[in-house]
Structure formats: structure tokens, C-alpha cells
Amino acid sequence: MFPASFEYVRAHTTDEAFAALQQHGFDGRVLAGGQSLIPAMRYRLARPAVLVDINPIKDLEFLKEENGFLRIGATTRDAALEFAPWILQRYSLITAVSKVVADPIVRHMGTVVGSVCHNDPAGDWTATSLASRAVMVVRGKNGLREVPIDEFLVDSYTTAVEEGEMALELKIPIPDAHTQGSYQKIERKVGDYATCAAAVQISLNADGTIRQAGIAITAAGPIAMRVAAAEAMLVGQKPSLELIKAAAAEAPKIASPNADQRGSSEYKKDMTRVLVGRGITEALQRLGVNA
């Protein structure tokens, strides 16, 4: 179906885009890759009055490491991460995610920042951002502010980006040599919404105990969720099979998945346990630890 009519604003600079968004307020919406927004508009689930196209803004298309962070610009495509050899070598969580988001064609247009801003209940990048403790840079009336991902993700399709504001980049702390991740996703077929997925990132101390753990589940409730109890259980401990099982068992306690054609609520809840367990196990294996 055709989308409803809208006014199109082509922005060439961040200033132009921001001015247009300020002018149009809640009527305005940022158009980045459009791989979620355009289908939603075609189904008339979304009817923005004004679209501000940020694709021509060259300054927002970047993927670089700076001051301890991997910086991903607002128009940087998923494929840019998927095909960067240095990402493949050093970012195991991001590498795993970048191969399973949507399908290979969609990844050439879809953006990481756009996906996090869309905040779909089944988003892959939202769960990844939680596990890797990302920060979103948002431009507002009072200038730039950095919003930790836990505060950024407010509710289904709702983020900390307020009326007239725009997200400029996602910052992910650079994993050190003792940090590895894993992404576990069940989907009926490529391109479908996940039945359930889990993002895991583990950092070890020199003595082999767990220094930091990032664990998030997605497609398991209204929003991607941090399994904080599992993280707390892991930190400071030596990895063991019992510990992994106990941590994984925390995931279903916070999951509230809807039953649909992909499975019953009970099944999906149990899959959060299974996927978190597999994710922790794989991250540890990548760190050379077989629990």
C-alpha cells in the first residue's frame, strides 16, 4: 500500500535537520534508513506529517574509535559494521548481531542508531546496546547530551528523544582484550521478528573472575530488557556451569513475552533462559574459558 502523504524535508547538515525538527515538533520525524519506518508507513501504522531526511548529511555517516568508544553515526548502515574487518576481529558481540539483523539487503539501508531509536520490542541493536552499555548522543534545545542506554529505552517505540530532538550517534565502550560477547537469536526465518534473542558480553579479571557482565533479552516483553539479577550474580565470581545455569534462570523471571505464531509465552520465557545460558557459555569460550 502507499504511505499517507507527508511533507519531505531534505537536510544536508545537522543544523538543517535540527531546525526542521524544532519547527515541526511532534509532527516531524527523522528518516534515516527507513527500513522500519517505511514499512510502518505503508501499513499506515505510522503517519508522520513531516519527514526530515538525514541521509544526505555526510557528517553523520561514520564508524570510528575515539576516546575509548566505538562511535556509530546516525546514518551509518548495519552493513558498514558487518563488512568492517576490524569490527570482525575485535567486536564479537557486534559481529554476531550484524549478521542476523533483518536480512542482508535490508542491512545495506538500515541504520544502527535508527534501529535503537525505533525501539522495537524485538530489536537486536537495543539488546546489544544494553549488553555493551552504550550511550546515545542526543541533540536538544540546550545542546548535546549523552543518555545511557538504560535511560534511553523508555517503552515500546518510545525513547528519551523528546519533541524536536534528534539522536546523532551511538557510543559503545571499546571492549578490552578480556571482553567477549555473544548474540543468540531464534527466528523462524531470516527477516522475521525474533522468536526470542539474548545479547551477552562478559569481561574477566586477570584472576579469571568475572569483572563485568552485560546481559539483555529481546522479543521477550514490551522492550529489550537488562537481566540485572543475572549480571549481579556473575560479577566477582569464577565461571562455572552452576553459576551460568543460575544466572540464566533469572531471565524468565523478568520476561513477559506475548504468545503468537512464534510460540507460547511459556516457550518464549524458557527460551530466554536457554539463550542467556548459551550466550554466557559462548562468550566465556571466546575468552578461553570452558565452564
Binding site: I38, Y43, I105, V106, M109
Partner: peptide, 23 residues
Amino acid sequence: SSSCGVCTVLLDGDKPVKSCTMF
């Protein structure tokens, strides 16, 4: 619905995109 890929074209030479999911 952006699923089937029959509308795939190349953008700027080498990027396959679904032309039904682009204005």
C-alpha cells in the same frame, strides 16, 4: 512488506536495496 526482495536494485553501484522500502 519488505520481505521478498523481488524489487532489489543496486544503489550507487554495489549496494543492494529493496526499492519498495525507499522513497
